[in-house]
């Protein structure tokens, strides 16, 4: 630890920059692709519901837009066959969409 660290306060602009980058990445994903993401979620739910019951909250669809490529992240939490006794297991799938 720097003995004289207390003399200079940490600059705040890098914090602002980092907070904005995280926030806007999220907000762009929500407002930019809301229709597509919502539609995908409904269709995925419909397909899975044919085979076993699933709660809506267990399906997460996220679209991150990037310069070179965007990432579509689909996270489906599947209950184990003995879910009545045990806590639910996790199933995840990640896809990269060019």
């Amino acid at each position: 630890m720097n003995l004289f660290g207390f003399l200079k306060s940490r600059p705040s602009a890098p914090v602002a920059r980092e907070r904005l980058q995280i926030l806007l990445a999220h907000e762009r994903a929500v407002s930019g692709g809301s229709d597509l993401v919502a539609q995908l979620k409904e269709e995925i739910l419909a397909v899975i519901a044919k085979h076993f019951p699933l709660e809506r909250e267990k399906v997460q669809v996220k679209l991150d837009r990037g310069d070179a490529f965007s990432t579509l992240e689909i996270d489906i939490e599947v209950p184990s066959p003995t879910a009545a006794h045990k806590t639910a297991g996790n199933g995840g799938a990640k896809l990269a969409a060019p």
Partner: peptide, 15 residues
């Protein structure tokens, strides 16, 4: 901006 107390031009442009 130089002191790190304000977002720099490059920061805003990058975002």
């Amino acid at each position: 901006a130089l002191r790190g107390d304000m977002l720099k031009v490059e920061d805003v442009l990058e975002i």
